[in-house]
Design a protein around this nucleic acid. Structure first.
Lengths: 231, 231
DNA sequence: TTTAAACTGACACACGCATGACAAATCATT
DNA sequence: AATGATTTGTCATGCGTGTGTCAGTTTAAA
């Protein structure tokens, strides 16, 4: 899928220069020369990044940003500012900007920052409807009620820590979650239970959710690293 | 939960200044004055952000970054560079940096960027399929899940050393990576396994990913130097 | 006090991976 | 071409450490 960028800039020459350079790097570019159009586009279409000039006639970049953020909280915004003042930056940050570039800027610099920001936009899975129940295999977990249905169809009451750990693993399904990360996330930075504690929970999960707990299909252990959940 | 930042900087005064300012903004700060410690901390603990000086004695920031990224793909990294050269930035980006700041910098500027990056790190409960996967030939590797698809289409669970070495080679595709560099990067500064160890891993890779392991198309050995990966 | 949850320590086992031996390949030297 | 030297490919084996498992203890909740 192509990465889409919306560029908002009233100075035509600069706008064209940016467009051409971005297109050379295989971005799909949409342009606007004023805030009105920018808002319209941002509502109608989806972008991986919005490049927004601050100094524009009628509606300035901050105002545009502020309005955008009313509906769209995720798309990264890169500001192009003329002044290199601190107030401008704080102002922008407050309104939900993600990066700045002070004019005049190097085009390569712009391309770099675009690349980084787009990377971020891909990372965050925006707003996946968070149902409190998860199904996998013949099992089911409900994080609202702390209950689960195991392989044998039996109902299980999850304990607090069980639920926390299970959620952590399921949220990061298919990823390897290191023991360190588990400890610091599900427990705390201060408490460090002995290494065997985590295993005990995994043990329980395997009993609940694995047909053959010796050959797990869902709760894998990655030696030397941690654990991995797959559906 | 507190946001944790690891700051790596050899100049003590600057380090203290950064620490104090970050702590004033309610970050939990861990500091290191050299690459060795930095790597140790990054392995043992979890951070929301790592601030990394490029110019350091013994091991420079790029090297530290490269090693970190072998195992940790998520934590954002902010580079502090002295030179404002484009090559530096491209180099850093390749190795997985997320932002730059050129010395001398304004402390407020640093705080701003830290804030932005930490925000990103919190956003991502990455369900991320896109990033961290590499394809070549009929094969595929996913460094997030430690899985790979071999020539026969079979799924392979990579071990951590396998993943680290594989990433090292793929990151430097088309370049010859010397045995020495491999040892220093994927292993440690202290341990020096016998020469045969690396070969064993290459052997495994060829079994996984080469149709004819006698005539490799991807994992070349360069006699007297090391190995080279090409797609 | 009672009870369930959470943690700890002990032990066995299995897995990753380092090692050494040897074969095969490549290079150097004559 | 032939020989020896050096490096890499390949495999079997053993060691160390991380993990599975469980029984027993501590902690927290009712």
């Amino acid at each position: 899928m192509l990465n889409r960028v919306l560029v908002v800039e009233d100075e035509k020459n600069l706008l064209d220069a940016i467009r051409i350079n971005l297109e050379l790097e295989d971005y799909e570019v949409v342009t606007a020369t004023n805030g009105i159009d920018a808002l319209k586009f941002s509502k109608e279409q989806r972008f991986n990044l919005i490049v927004l000039d601050v100094m524009m006639p009628e509606m300035n970049g901050f105002q545009v940003c502020e309005k955008m953020r009313l509906t769209d909280l995720d798309t990264p915004i890169l500001f192009l500012t003329a002044k290199d003042t601190h107030e401008d930056k704080v102002m922008g940050l407050k309104l939900g900007a993600d990066d700045y570039l002070t004019k005049p800027f190097n085009l390569e610099e712009l391309l770099l920052r675009v690349k980084i920001l787009v990377k971020h936009s891909l990372k965050g899975t925006p707003k996946d409807k968070k149902s409190a129940t998860v199904e996998f295999g013949s099992c089911m977990v409900d994080f609202k009620t702390f209950t689960a249905k195991g392989t044998n169809g039996k109902l299980i009451q999850l304990t607090q820590k069980e639920a926390a750990l299970l959620k952590l693993l399921i949220d990061r399904k298919n990823q390897v979650v290191s023991r360190q990360h588990i400890l610091q996330t599900a427990w705390g930075y201060d408490v460090t239970p002995s290494t065997r504690t985590i295993d005990n929970f995994i043990l329980a999960f395997r009993r609940y959710f694995e047909k053959d707990s010796r050959n797990p299909k869902h709760f894998f252990s990655i030696r030397g690293v941690g654990y991995k959940f797959v559906e």
